[in-house]
Amino acid sequence: MASTKAIKNRIHSVGDTQKITNAMYLISSTKMRKARREAEDTKPYFDLLRREIRRMFAVGTDLSSRYYDADVDENVAGGRNAILVITGDKGLAGAYNQSVLKETQALIDRSDEYRLYVVGDYGWRYFKSRNANVCETFTHSMHEPSLAMARDITMELLDDFDRGDFDRIYVCYTEYGGSMSAGVPMHDRLIPFDRDDFVPQGEEKDRDASTVFEYEPDVETVLERIIQSYMVGYVYSALVNSYSSEQNARMMAMDSANDNASDLLDTLEKQYNHLRQNAITQEITEISSGARSLSSKGK
């Protein structure tokens, strides 16, 4: 059995590690709260934007453009795809990075041709080391999702799309699934997007139909411009969702690390006490037997 000194050292080092995991837990929870609060602030804007897009689709039912399409069959494999992958910068977040990378790999396997746009250092290093087709000039870290960042990302993607580099843009991200879940990896098609997502329903449909608007110069021009703003919103929400999932996954990983550390400390503490007690008992036995032999000599 190890010496008491070795166990004492071990207890110290486990205690220090626990301090770190505990701090990481707290940092993650603060980061997540901040990101979610900022995302809440932008919600009313994008809800209104979405509503206006729905209204325009309701007016111009025969509209079509390279950004949106009436019927793209999701099940058809192949095509030239751009894939926007959102990963974290660092590990220590359970299976968070691996699950979204797996999702991306599945999408790559289905494409005839692909190019990756990777957000986050983890994913960047992963795909670089595997010699995947990564867009070199696209460098974004995942330190804190912001609208400005979402705007930059969207514009870079649209530039390449408008140049005709690819036919579709996909986003691979992790949908935030509440505080008890590590999030669900997803892929969504960003462009061309589905008009069916924008069908006005129920009460809103009646109300929208009753007001007539004049469009200057025409619905198509207005829609084309608005849709870019909408995409920025979409990318932003994917960023925030992923970021929240990452922080949440890290919180869960750190929480179980904390628990493990506590268990380990308990066991070590018991071992230490046991050893110490043994040493004391042994010492007493030695002293008392020594005393007895002395006193028996004295008789």
Partner: peptide
């Protein structure tokens, strides 16, 4: 897109 415009009260319904 159609140049600079000014809007006063009682403008007709429009989207630009």
């Amino acid at each position: 897109t159609e140049g600079s415009i000014g809007i006063l009260a009682h403008h007709s319904n429009i989207i630009m």
